[in-house]
């Protein structure tokens, strides 16, 4: 069985996220070698001092904004909360808020196909609680 384009995209995103430059996979009879220019992590972690932060997708796939119940602007979010999921085929990966705060904008749409780095939420960081 060949790897599907979705699966390769998943792997590349995972490499970027983990700062992996090369990946060799042997799975059953399959073999796959990927080489990536390991990019910087997106959005949140690059601007730690700003109060308003953007939470971006860390995976490629279909966005589910209601994975942990419907979210509305003004909602309180704790650091580490799963605020959405991104689906690749039957697999879902988390979108996690790195900080505590109040949701100020929902940038993503339910069911949207997102890429690695697509901005999804804006959150106003609550000082001292994260």
């Amino acid at each position: 069985m060949m790897f599907t384009s979705d699966e390769i995209a998943l792997l590349v995103a995972s490499m970027k996220r983990n700062g992996v430059a090369e990946l060799d996979i042997r799975h059953d009879a399959e073999e796959l070698r990927l080489v990536s220019a390991a990019g910087a992590r997106p959005g949140p972690s690059s601007s730690p001092r700003k109060a308003a932060r953007t939470i971006s997708a860390t995976a490629f796939g279909v966005l589910d904004l209601e994975a942990t119940g419907p979210l509305a602007v003004g909602a309180s979010i704790a650091a580490g909360d799963i605020v959405a999921t991104v689906a690749v085929g039957p697999l879902r990966r988390p979108v996690v808020s790195p900080v505590a705060g109040k949701l100020t904008k929902i940038l993503g749409r339910q069911g949207q196909r997102v890429e690695y780095g697509t901005p999804l939420f804006e959150i106003l960081e609550t000082k001292g609680l994260s």
Partner: peptide, 15 residues
């Protein structure tokens, strides 16, 4: 888990 928050499945009823 590569994502610290874990990983999930699309519910069978949808998939």
């Amino acid at each position: 888990f590569r994502d610290g928050a874990g990983v999930g499945a699309t519910p069978a009823a949808e998939a």
